[in-house]
Each structure stands twice: as C-alpha cells, then as structure tokens.
Simulated assay, not measured.
Amino acid sequence: MRGFSTNAIHAGQEPDPSTGAVIVPIHASSTFAQDGVGGLRAGYEYSRSANPTRTALQECLAALEGGRHGVAFGSGMGASDVLLRVLLKPGDHIVIPHDAYGGTFRLVDKVLTGWGIEYTPVDLGDVDALRAAVRPTTRVIWCETPTNPLLGIADIAALADVARTAQARLVVDNTFASPYLQNPLALGADVVLHSTTKYVGGHSDVVGGALVTSDDELADKIRFTQNSVGSVPGPFDAWLTLRGAKTLAVRMERHSDNAERIAELLVGHRNVEKVYYPGLPEHTGHDVAAKQMRRFGGMVSFTVTGGSAAALAVCAATELFTLAESLGGVESLIEHPAAMTHASVAGSVLEVPDNLVRLSVGIEDVEDLADDLRAALDGLRSP
C-alpha cells in the first residue's frame, strides 16, 4: 500500500500518454470528439458530465481518504447540497452539530426546511445526547470534527455505531482536519465531505468541494445528481486543487507545529479567557482527537476579555494575520466569527460567542506570528 504523500503526488496522475507530460494537463475543452455516434474516446463527451483533469483530482482525493469513489464539486456547499438531495426526502430528519459551520446551518435551516426536512442540533461530543435526538425518520447524522469555529471533537467510530443502529448515514465534514490528519471512512463514516478550498487546495486561490465514499450505489446517485444540477468545478480549478494536494502532508505538519505554539501563547496570555484547540490536554475532546487524528491541525479559536469590542480590536490590530474569511491557506488569517463566517447563526441555538476570535494559522515563521498576535493582545486594556 502506498503512503499518503506518494498518493498525493501520483494517484490519478500518471504521465500524459500522448506527450509524456509529468503534470496532469488542464483539459480546457467543453466537449469531446466522438468516433461515431456514442463512440466516446476514454469515456468523455461533455465537461459537465466528466473531464479528464477532474477525473485525476477525483482519483487522487479518493486515494487520500481511502475510499473507492471521489467526486469533485465547484464548492464545498455545492457538494453538501448534492449529497443532501441524494440522502433526504420531504419528511426526513437530519442531526447536525450544535456548533456547525454557518453555511451548513444556513443550507439546512433556510433551504431544506422549506422542502419539508426537519433537523436537530446536538453536541456530537455527547453520544448519549445523539442517541436521544435520533428519530425513526432520521436519515443523516452530519458531523464536523473538529467543528467550525469552536473546535469541538466527536468520536467518529461511536457516531458510526449510532448511525448504523438508526439505519442512517454518517457524513463527516473533514475540512478542518484534511485527509492527512484524519480518515473518517476508516472509522465507519459513510461519506467524507471537504471544502477543498481550504487545506486541500491550500493556497487561497481556488474554490472547490469534494465527496468521497466507498458505497458504489451512493456514488452513482451522487454523480447522477451532480450532472443533473451542474455543480461541477472547471478544469483549471480541478488542476489548481490537484496541485495543492501534492504538498498537503508537508503543509499540515507545519500548520500543526505553528498552531501548537500559538495555542500555548494564548493559554498564558492575561487577556485571553479560553482557548479552543484539541491539541491542548485540557480540551474536552483531546483524548478522542489524539485517538483518531494524526495531529491536531492548524485552526485555533479563543475568547478575549472585554467582549465583542475587544475581539474586533484584536482582529484589527494584527499585521501578519490577515483579517479575512476562509481558512487553510499557507498565509495566516484572523476573523470574528459572530460577524463574519457565522453571522447566519445569529439569534439561533448555534450562535457563537461575540468575543470569539478564530485563527487559521499559516506556515510562516512561527515566532513572527507569535509576536504579531502577542502585540495585538497586549494592546487590549487588561481587566
């Protein structure tokens, strides 16, 4: 069996047979010549249905997650939408994390409920609470681990047991961990979701999403629905994502190194109330994370003393941490979830603290990052 980095560089990426090109070409063609009616060359007819560059990416992602089928999308939300169209019908019920990503909550709460879908937010770190929330109509348990933005941890294997008993599908959004740090299919999940915009792409220059599964029938339904609704990435986007995946392992090691150092700094700072990072021994999900993750990743959140105004002041004061949404790129980002990525959950049971700051810790020199963040925090008036 090949190792992770070998798959990242070679899976689906043999040298081009016609030219010998080592790097997968960008097949920027919307349509493909046929050898007679229905005589497809290598199975391609129209790029909404399939494209060779996208195929290479899909084969690579499947290999990285240890699944049989990878399907690439134009965005993570596009992947989420297609999957839920496939798995749910009017009258069905879905369980979501009580601190789910704001875009996921918006899709479920604002779009799917209009289609007759019911949902229940649950702390998926509490398996008993999940069991209590499951209904006869529950068809999907939707998990993020770590969660966005509170870095909650769920035991994927335990959730898979609950899902099997309920005859529901366990979907794991693996965006924060990346395939390098965690492989949910090996722990019993039915489907893995990625916003490949984030760590897989890794350079903040492409938007994309992906689903990976080993269920042949489910994969066929996903592909059919994707083709029907047109939620596909272009070949250049697929190529950029594939290029990013090649360095995923080395980047995730550096992200994790840097995030561990930043978390330690935050824990000891007088103007920080609480640090959310599963690599900290005091994190409630630390032991589970240590069991199912290779390392603890590059995302760190924390609350500051002084409320929302203090959080906004910290976000405005950093120089190397750029104020921006998204995450997982080589550069460090800082944001205020309550007013930015998670504004859609304001006033709901998923509302996040208004003094919460989220960091996507990049791969710069860590002492420079530490100095930047320390200066921003030192500038706050102490309580």
Rank of each mutant, 00 (worst) to 15 (best):
V122C: 02
I141W: 10
P235F: 02
H27A: 13
H342T: 09
I94E: 03
R106D: 15
H93Y: 05
C143F: 00
L369Y: 03
K221G: 00
F321I: 03
V171Y: 05
R106L: 12
G306F: 04
Y180N: 06
G67E: 00
L323S: 04
A50T: 05
H203L: 09
G208T: 10
L312E: 15
I156S: 09
E367N: 15
S178C: 13
L327A: 13
H194V: 09
T137H: 06
L112K: 04
L159P: 11
Q58T: 11
P184T: 09
M340T: 14
D354V: 04
Q167H: 14
I262Q: 01
T305K: 14
T303P: 02
F296A: 05
T284I: 03
A259M: 14
P179K: 00
L112D: 00
G234R: 11
G114K: 12
L87D: 01
L57I: 02
A317G: 10
I222V: 15
H203D: 14
E351Q: 14
S308L: 01
T225C: 03
V127M: 01
S326G: 06
S360F: 01
G209P: 12
T303M: 01
E253C: 09
S204A: 11
H194Q: 13
T241E: 05
T196P: 03
G36P: 04
C143V: 10
A166V: 14
T104D: 13
L185H: 06
A56R: 09
F296T: 07
D99H: 12
D35P: 00
R139Y: 07
V366M: 03
S231R: 09
I9V: 13
E253F: 05
G125V: 06
L61Y: 02
E325F: 08
N148A: 09
K274T: 15
E260C: 08
G230Q: 05
E319K: 08
A343W: 02
A186N: 07
E260N: 11
V172R: 06
K198L: 07
P337N: 13
L88G: 02
G208D: 11
K89S: 15
T6K: 00
A189S: 10
V108Q: 08
D368N: 10
V71D: 03
W142E: 04
L280K: 11
G285C: 12
D173P: 13
L64M: 07
F105G: 00
A21H: 11
T120D: 07
D378K: 08
R54N: 04
P146S: 06
D161N: 10
A154E: 01
L193Q: 10
A28I: 05
G328E: 14
D16A: 12
R54L: 00
H98S: 15
P184K: 09
R254C: 13
G328F: 08
S382F: 12
R295N: 13
G12Q: 13
P25V: 10
V300R: 03
R68C: 12
R261Y: 07
L87W: 08
R2F: 03
Y119K: 00
P235L: 04
D109H: 15
E45Q: 08
F32P: 00
R68L: 15
V229Y: 06
A79Y: 10
L64S: 01
V250Q: 11
E351C: 06
P25N: 10
P337K: 13
A177H: 08
Y119W: 11
G298L: 02
R223K: 04
H255G: 14
G329Y: 03
E325H: 07
L312A: 13
P233S: 13
V267M: 11
H98C: 14
G3M: 02
E118H: 08
A338F: 12
G285Y: 10
